[in-house]
Amino acid sequence: MLDRRSALATFVTGLLASGLARGAKAEIQPMTDPTEIIELWPAGPPGAEKVTAVEAIIERGDPKGLRDRALTHTRNPTLVVFRPRTPNGAAVMLIPGGGYERVVLDKEGYETARWLADRGYTCFVLFYRLPGDGWAAGPDAPLQDAQRGLRLIRSRAAAMGFSPERLAIMGFSAGGHVAASLTTRFTAKVYERTDAADDLSARPNLSALVYPVITMDPASMHGGSRKQLLGANPTPERIAFYSPEKQVGADLPPVFLLHAADDKSVPVENSLAMFSALKAKAIPTEMHVFEEGGHGFGLRFVTGKPVAAWPGLFEAFAKRHGV
């Protein structure tokens, strides 16, 4: 099993590197090839007994001709590492979106990781398991991977040249729900201890939620994400439990929120609800709502729009809060 997983990781790395080597046009520059992969679970992820889905990378196409790949049916959760040329002592774990049906690679993963790495951040793109694939943990499978990923990153801080207390997370769309869940449920025991890394805190030092899926409430939900996470007819109790705005405690890290008012996929009310919940608990938070931008803009669909300012706004917020 270990040899097979290692071979799969090597195969995926080759696929990604070959695609990235072709580069991107328009405003996105060619990205650093991902050459370093960290497997989250040395003996395999927990609760795989009933999982039969086959992991695959699909090319979704892009109107500008850029690579737009997605990983489906994640079987072997990993962190893909982007090391900066000049480390600034901080790190970011990026959690791409995909409606809990897939995990996108390029737009919300590698492109953003490269931008951050160019500014000194050591970056880790998380490829997490999906709740509809039959994992025993069900809706907590992505949170298992997020907790484990952050702890592994923290355990390697000294060796990789960043502070374990300057570790941010950045989640997009459904990945924003994973990030918000980690932000609010970092103390939840959702898996059994694997090794010494699991003795470390899973609390991020800062959280960035970018056009995030937050609430499971039908009034503002993203229907596809909720169906994948909770099924067709979740109880009111499960809806509340898996709505991070309902789980905000007093010990959360600072949170940066970003949304476009014209988002037709994930209503802006998701970020508004999270902002209100954070303010009610006096959690340091900053929210930027732009008039236009739609959904899933990442870095590639912002040229000429006010929303193009968002990466710099995040960087300023992170620096103000010591990350």
Rank of each mutant, 00 (worst) to 15 (best):
E108W: 05
P253A: 15
H73F: 10
M216I: 12
V302P: 00
P142D: 03
Q144E: 10
R300G: 08
L94D: 09
L313W: 01
G293Q: 04
A318S: 08
R193D: 05
Y242N: 04
A56N: 13
E269H: 14
D262K: 00
G249Q: 11
S181T: 14
T235I: 06
A9W: 05
L200D: 01
V210E: 01
K279T: 15
R154S: 05
L40I: 00
P218K: 09
A196S: 14
K107W: 10
S181G: 10
R185M: 06
E108M: 07
A17H: 06
D133T: 06
F290S: 02
E59C: 11
K25A: 12
K305M: 04
A179E: 05
R60Q: 13
M1Y: 13
T183L: 08
W310C: 09
A53E: 14
H295V: 02
I214M: 00
K227A: 09
A48D: 11
F186T: 07
S207R: 00
D263A: 02
L152M: 08
R156L: 12
Q228A: 15
D33C: 15
L15R: 08
F241E: 15
A240E: 10
R226S: 11
L16T: 02
I57K: 07
S201N: 05
M221L: 15
M216G: 12
F82Y: 12
G47A: 00
D198P: 12
F186C: 06
G120Y: 06
K305A: 00
P244A: 06
R69T: 10
V125R: 01
W135F: 11
T187E: 14
R83W: 03
S201C: 06
N233P: 05
G14E: 09
P34N: 00
F275G: 14
H295L: 04
T194M: 12
L209N: 03
